[in-house]
Design a protein around this nucleic acid. Structure first.
Ligand code: MN
Ligand code: MN
Ligand code: ZN
Ligand code: ZN
Lengths: 156, 156
DNA sequence: AAAACATATTAGAATGGTTCTAAATTAGAA
DNA sequence: TTCTAATTTAGAACCATTCTAATATGTTTT
């Protein structure tokens, strides 16, 4: 499995980056970060808590929120707020954008070679037209995922 | 003012579209819709309520939420969930995308002639790679608005 | 190694935006 | 005008997120 090596590398590099910013690594922080690196389901806080409950049975939700805030500040994780009031989280290694199912809420990664150039084009237009100082770009495509198309008899 | 004519036209057409779908028009609904068409600040529910309180002093928040849901179902309004837990709303006449200030929360429209083609390119990639049935696309550029750049002494 | 200090974690309370509920009102059809 | 289904309303309920203050842990200093 080549993914494992990549994910180990990502974990090592992320921890180094965090420490370089003078922030402590704790067992809680490392386990939450590892969960985010190894799970690509764009989990909510509740999903993260359930996913690591065997390793950290007494983990407080406050710690998850605090850790995520730290990871966002360190530009390792992005937030994906949704219409249902919750926020989902994504370890943002390789630039990509998202397809979101309006029926089941699933968030699917879309990797496109041209995406960085497209994002740059949109950012340049924003800079020129609005004068904003740009820090990041987010693209979300709404729709119905293949599984829900079947469920709802929308396929073919 | 040429905007006024456009906005009146948008109001008329929107009401026609709603009625065509068999939905009743009430004073509350018309006033909320008119507010959304004539204000481009991407307001929250609370901002909408404050903005029309002279016309509708007893307007319930439930009615605003219900009306917005109806307008979203009728594809006249889009929702912009944000990281602070709230949702902001946008009458979505001409396709465009948004710049969002991380400091003050302001949402600025960006109109770009090439945007519809770019959105179509991203949607095609999503269809091909993920099999989603696409219903809409959203682009959000994060950054610091010109006013906040001055406040924070980030300008020049 | 021990003490002192700074930082992080925890359980539970507080907050606040959104949704729900049930009674009163109203729009539009007949 | 009468009738009925849809809509509005005030306030309660819900639930994700933030806050609080006590406890625990890590880092640095002696
Ligand atoms: Mn992702
Ligand atoms: Mn807009
Ligand atoms: Zn789905
Ligand atoms: Zn600003």
């Amino acid at each position: 499995m080549d993914n494992l090596k990549t994910e180990n590398t990502q974990l090592t590099h992320s921890i180094k980056k965090i420490k370089a910013n003078g922030v402590r690594i704790t067992p809680q922080r490392e386990i939450i970060l590892e969960y985010l690196i190894t799970h690509h389901i764009h989990p909510s806080v509740k999903t993260i808590q359930a996913g690591i409950s065997s390793k950290l049975p007494n983990l407080s939700t406050a710690t998850i929120y605090n850790t995520i805030k730290m990871l966002v500040d360190n530009e390792l994780v992005i937030e994906l707020p949704n219409k249902d009031g919750g926020i989902r989280y994504d370890y943002f290694g390789v630039p990509h954008f998202h397809a979101i199912c309006e029926n089941c809420g699933k968030i699917t990664d879309v990797f496109l070679d041209e995406y960085p150039q497209i994002a740059e084009e949109l950012e340049k237009a924003t800079r020129d037209k609005s004068g904003y100082l740009i820090t990041g770009t987010k693209v979300e495509i709404s729709g119905i995922c293949p599984e829900c198309q079947k469920k709802l008899h929308l396929d073919k």
